[in-house]
Design a protein around this nucleic acid. Structure first.
Lengths: 216, 216
DNA sequence: GGGTCTCAGATGACGTTGTCATCTTGGTTA
DNA sequence: TAACCAAGATGACAACGTCATCTGAGACCC
């Protein structure tokens, strides 16, 4: 026998997986609540029992991805076999790799936060679910997950340039990495004018920070 | 009296303006062909006489924006009163400024290129319009406009680090600038971990490239 | 100048989608 | 066992992108 809670958790998982699959295949517009439901073995309205709507579902997918990325960077950071600069290179390549391998998911990671007021709705049970449910605000969850990644990344940077300068260089390195990934997947890199590859750029970044060393 | 060509050009302009306005206000989802038509004084189907569809219209808006940005950088580049590093700072800030002031438009500038095959359609007059029309492929137009901006930007970089290194550093600077702009507008900058401001990051970038000078 | 052509725009229609209110049903609990 | 509750099913609705078709006025040729 299957308890109701277990069944619900299973459905939620299936919904997230289906949404992630469809997102990979055809981008956000391909993520149809009807198709998501069908793949999860439920009907179109069922997702509303687990998420406030389509946005909320996609945000949850992004949250899980951020958590996965944060875990990867953590594993990489605590690997004793790697040098500090190797770890930094690896962390940068991890993020850029998501952009290359899962471009649609990647764009979800960097979507505008925050609910517009009209997103809140006023159905009674929806309000209650938002207040009491374990999920909480999906947008806030994603911010939290992204922040965990940023912390891990910052720790990697600190190993290389010291705690003092980590904040400043961390921001520079992370924004640069995102720019590389996003311009690569949007086709703005590798044009006639910008013929550099992501790997070249990452190498230059790491070298610059290593050379300049501790003086920001 | 108004010739037909003039009237059509006027409508096309009104459609582009209306789309740009709606994009600014509420993002791509707020750009409804019906509302665009209404603001331009025509009906929902009229835009299809000037663009192949909604995507094409938004792409055209992005194209015009790229051209405007390219013009701005060109004006800045040919300003004799500025130093080379000042010009670079200005060019970087120009791009980031668009991200800050018109976030929705900015995201349109960096959208995935390329038509999916099913976008082509097979209506006879549509095919003819695509083949013979002066507009050509809207996606290709945007690529061209973006490339013009990249060329202008590269010229600015070349003034500072020389022709030889311009390609490499240009790619690094441009991707970084985009990363700064995009993470700023998506709320990933200015968090606890990443407290840097765009201006600080731009200054560091320019200083790094200036210091390292000619050796890539 | 009259007839024909051409194309910008209007109109009606269709399928799809997100969202909601309502209903059903089977696990849960007193 | 009976009341209860929430997960899910179902019907419905408005909005949207898109298309085929129709209309009318400027453009063009004789």
């Amino acid at each position: 026998m299957v308890t109701r809670a277990e069944s619900a958790a299973l459905t939620r998982r299936a919904l997230l997986d289906a949404a992630a699959d469809l997102l990979d295949l055809g981008g956000p517009e391909a993520v149809t609540l009807r198709e998501v439901g069908a793949r999860a073995g439920v009907t179109r309205g069922a997702p509303y029992r687990h998420f406030t709507g389509k946005d909320s579902l996609l945000t949850a997918v992004a949250t899980e991805s951020w958590e996965r990325i944060a875990d990867q960077v953590r594993a990489l950071r605590t690997d004793p076999a790697r040098s500090a600069s190797d770890k930094l290179r690896g962390a940068l390549r991890t993020l850029i790799g998501v952009g290359r391998d899962q471009p649609h998911l990647y764009q979800m990671l960097f979507r505008r936060h925050g609910h517009r007021p009209e997103d809140l709705g006023e159905g009674l049970d929806r309000v209650r679910r938002q207040l009491c449910g374990p999920a909480g605000d999906p947008a806030a969850d994603r911010v939290r997950a992204a922040a965990r990644f940023q912390d891990e990344f910052l720790a990697v940077v600190a190993d290389l340039v010291g705690e003092r300068n980590a904040r400043h260089y961390g921001a520079l390195l992370l924004t640069s990495a995102h720019g590389i990934a996003d311009m690569e997947l949007s086709g703005h890199l590798g044009t006639d004018a910008l013929r550099a590859t992501p790997d070249e750029l990452v190498d230059t970044l790491v070298r610059m920070v290593t050379d300049v060393g501790g003086t920001p």
